[in-house]
Design a protein around this nucleic acid. Structure first.
Lengths: 176, 176
DNA sequence: GGGCGGTTATGACGATCGTCATAGTCGTCG
DNA sequence: CGACGACTATGACGATCGTCATAACCGCCC
């Protein structure tokens, strides 16, 4: 059910996804939404965002552990490019969708903020291990996260992964 | 009316903004929506996005004409930081909101794509004038646009302009 | 086997959505 | 002055939204 919510949030955004869509997509029983999520849509959106954020954080962890930052960014760009192309530019980052959620689901917004902070901290830690000063590491980590999130947005709108790839090239050039 | 739509799209996103909200906010007569916008919400969202995109393109033009790229990015960051703080992190980029619009308003999405492309071209032109090769200029322009859009998203979610400022510092460092 | 708590089925509620039809107002031009 | 066009007021329509109440189901423990 949470996974279905994530899929739909990615494709349509939080506001445009109804609980009926979620249960229909997941095959879950409609009557039990408020049994598992007494807080209604707000709670479901928050937990889905938290789950998605954690999942991407694990991806970040794997990447920075297995390669230097520049190569990690490269693989990250490949990953998102594949997501965009496979979905015909319908699917974007679920956390970005949550970040732009309307007021009645602002729990998802704070979950998105937590996720972004977590990602930045992960990257900043890896950069510090490679000799960057704390200030540099924090700024560069913020740039990487923001640039990739923004590139996903721009690439979706333009229906080409060119912006994402360009951003990847520039980030790698700078991190190398 | 278009301006009211832009304001509301910025705060709530396209999907969560109803036509009734728009007319109420603008004071415009409700009965005349389909007189001025026969295409309904789709047309209104598309035109509003186009209008907003052009407005920001003019801002870009002014900035790159009056300063070198690094200083222009600096002023751009100041501008958006002011927008975020003044609105208590409610207002973001209207074109980003359009980029994540749901399927039934995908006209706004293509308008967002056009706007992004326009901004990138403007910046790339300025960078080429300063001696960058076309490839470099295009990649860097894409990075600037994506990074700032992403930073707005992240800053909204985290309710602090720190990510935006960090991204600004890194971009300036790189462009200098 | 009998009860019982956790889960599901079903459908209703008020609200709100996009859309549109119809009837009115109002300025302008002949 | 009268008619005609552009614009507005009002309210209805079907659909869909989030939410919840109520009744049925089902597996497990005594």
């Amino acid at each position: 059910m949470l996974d279905s919510a994530i899929v739909l949030f990615r494709e349509r955004g939080v506001a445009a996804t109804s609980l009926r869509d979620v249960v229909a997509h997941s095959g879950a029983p409609r009557g039990s939404i408020y049994h598992h999520f007494p807080g209604g849509k707000q709670e479901l959106a928050s937990e889905a965002t938290r789950r998605a954020g954690d999942s991407i954080a694990r991806l970040f962890t794997r990447l920075v552990a297995s390669a230097d930052p520049a190569a990690a960014v490269d693989r990250l760009v490949d990953h998102w490019s594949g997501v965009l192309l496979d979905s015909d530019f319908a699917s974007t980052c679920p956390v970005a969708a949550a970040a732009l959620a309307p007021d009645d689901t602002d729990g998802a917004r704070v979950a998105a903020g937590v996720a972004f902070e977590q990602w930045e901290d992960l990257l900043a830690g890896a950069l510090r291990e490679r000799g960057a000063t704390p200030g540099e590491a924090a700024d560069r980590a913020a740039l990487v996260v923001s640039a990739i999130e923004g590139a996903l947005l721009v690439s979706r709108a333009r229906r080409t992964d060119a912006p994402l790839r360009a951003v990847g090239r520039e980030l790698v050039r700078q991190l190398a």
